[in-house]
Each structure stands twice: as C-alpha cells, then as structure tokens.
C-alpha cells in the first residue's frame, strides 16, 4: 500500500493542474483552423486560382484574420498579467514555443493581409491609388504563387506550433509526444478544409477540398493511433498518462466526441458525399470543426491532469 499526502493547496495547481480553462483550447483550435485556412488558401493560389473568380482562396484569409484575432483575444483573456503582454514582444526566446508562437501570430497577419488585399476588387480601392497599384502587382501570377508558398509555409508553422506549445511541456507526460505537432497541424488542416468545402461555391473546388478533408481525417486517425501507441510504448510516465484516454476520466469524451463524432462519423458521411451517394450536407463539416475543438479541449484538460507520477 502506498499513501501519498501533500499539504499543498495552490489554486489552479492543486489537487491537479487546471491553469488553462476554455481560453487556451479555443485559442489552439482557432489557431489550427487559421493554419488550415492559410495552407488551403495558399494551395489554391498556387494552383492558379485568381482573385475575382469566387474562389475560397481569397475568402479564407479574411476569415483567418477574424479567427486569429478571436484566438489572440482568447489567449489574451487567459493571461494573468494582461497589462504586461507587450513584454512578449521585447524579446524572442528561442527555447520557448510560447515566444515563437507570439511572433508567429504577428507574422501570419501580414501574410493573410496580403492575400486579403489581393482579393479586394479594384473599384473599392479607387480612393487609394498606391494601395490599388500594390494590390494589382500582387495579383500578378508570380506574386500570387509566391504568396501561396509563403501562406502554406506560415500556415504549417502556425499549425505545428499549436501542438508544440503543449508538447514542449515535458512535465505533463500526455503532452510529451512528438506526434502532437503534426496531429494538431492535420487537425487544423481538416478543420480548415471542412470549413472551406462548406463555404465553397465552385463545385470543382468544393470537391477537391472535400477530398482533401477526407485525406486529412484519415491522416488524423493515423496520427492519433501513433500518439496513443507512442505513449503506450514509452515507459511508465507515458503509459500512466495515456491511460487517461484509455480507461480513465477522459476516455468517454475522447472516443465519443473527438474520434467518433469528430472524425469517424464525418469521414463516413464525407466519403459518401465524395462518391456522390449522398448530397452535400453541412453536418459533416460542422462535425469536423466541432471535433477539432473537442480534440483541443480534451488534450489540454487531460494533459494538465496527467502528471509526473512517483512510482
């Protein structure tokens, strides 16, 4: 028999860590979604989608700016020392994913702003001739392709970062997994793709985005499997942590909301949609997006709950 007693009673820390409530999962979810938007928009740009033809490639940056602002709002709400937030931008800490994150957030704004600018119809900019001229130059094929590449690259950085932010915190064994970065990236991509095919008006674009989302969802399932197996095979700390998802307090939510309703069910529906056995429905993409949020919520909560056990 082993009995452990502690006299510690710090709020947010005891009896188990719960420093991060809804704000951080929402921020990570929105960040991932934005990453998805950027990658897909960049991909479409590189595939030659020009502004003014109703492509989602030029809607996504606008959406991304709004979502990212909401996400940063959530992050800001989480800070305990809000007035000092500017301190983050006095330094770049190479060892701190939180620090890179802060900078990545700042850097993706201009990228999205450029894509958004390219999408603004000419006559709306008539009052600002130099801006209009700049937008015109952006719309040139080569710059669009370059912008697409930059957009994909920053989207990937943003997407991976949302996972690394957690996985760098080795004290929480559930988070300590190299798969978390790719997982969050792919989840962000699928959220973005689901959103994109939901709002796409061009049928061809819709169907390629739908197929992309199917690919992302399958990849996500594979990464989740890797994530679980990786933990199960990495020693007591990890096995103990992953037990939270495999027979612990977070098992039901994880399997029902993240895997079942968030991936498997929409995957089936979307496959049926792709093979035209059923018509297009917004239910599937909404489930995918909800699943993306559920993934962040479960991983953030269970990860805080997981701790460095003393055998």
């Amino acid at each position: 028999m082993l009995e452990l007693v502690t006299t510690r009673h710090n709020p947010l820390v005891d009896p188990s860590l719960h420093i991060w409530g809804w704000e951080i999962p929402v921020y990570l979810f929105l960040g991932g979604w934005v990453a998805g938007c950027m990658v897909l928009s960049g991909w479409l740009m590189r595939r030659g989608r020009a502004p003014g033809q109703g492509s989602v490639a030029y809607v996504l940056p606008w959406v991304g700016i709004v979502l990212l602002s909401l996400g940063m709002g959530a992050l800001f709400l989480d800070l305990e020392h809000k007035l000092y937030v500017w301190r983050m931008y006095l330094t770049l800490r190479p060892t701190s994913p939180m620090s890179w994150g802060g900078w990545i957030l700042i850097l993706v704004y201009p990228v999205m702003a450029l894509a958004a600018l390219a999408a603004i119809p000419r006559d709306l900019l008539s009052g600002w001739p130099s801006l209009a001229a700049f937008a015109e130059r952006l719309r040139a094929g080569r710059s669009l392709r370059l912008l697409g590449t930059v957009s994909i690259a920053s989207g990937i950085a943003l997407g991976i970062y949302t996972g690394i932010l957690l996985s760098s915190l080795g004290a929480r064994p559930l988070w300590a997994s190299a798969v978390l970065g790719p997982l969050f990236l792919v989840s962000g991509l699928s959220t973005g793709a689901a959103f994109a095919h939901m709002i796409a008006r061009d049928p061809e674009e819709e169907s390629s985005l739908l197929r992309a989302d199917i690919l992302f969802l399958v990849t996500e399932l594979a990464l989740i499997a890797l994530f679980l197996i990786g933990h199960l095979t990495s020693g007591a700390q990890h096995a103990h942590a992953v037990a939270l998802l495999l027979g612990g307090p977070y098992t039901a939510v994880f399997w029902v909301f993240v895997v079942g309703l968030g991936i498997v069910v929409p995957l089936v529906i979307q496959s049926l949609m792709a093979s035209h056995r059923i018509g297009h429905t917004v239910i599937a993409p909404l489930l995918v997006m909800a699943g993306g949020l559920a993934l962040r919520i479960v991983i953030v909560a269970a990860g805080q709950y997981s701790h460095w056990i003393v055998p």
């Binding site: 420093i19 989480d78 800070l79 305990e80 020392h81 000092y84 701190s96 939180m98 915190l169």
Partner: peptide, 27 residues
C-alpha cells in the same frame, strides 16, 4: 514580476508543480 505576463507556461512546465499564480498576476 514586471516581465511576467502570466501565461502560465512555466506552471505547466514544472514537474514539481512548484509554481503558482500570485493574486497580483505573476508566476
């Protein structure tokens, strides 16, 4: 204290749970 933004990353990073958020907002 004056540099801390209260992001709590350090709370999560400590395997000993040695840190807490001071009511004044800093770790």
């Amino acid at each position: 204290h004056d540099k801390c933004i209260g992001c709590k990353a350090c709370l999560a990073a400590c395997p000993y749970d040695a840190r807490f958020v001071h009511p004044d907002g800093y770790a």
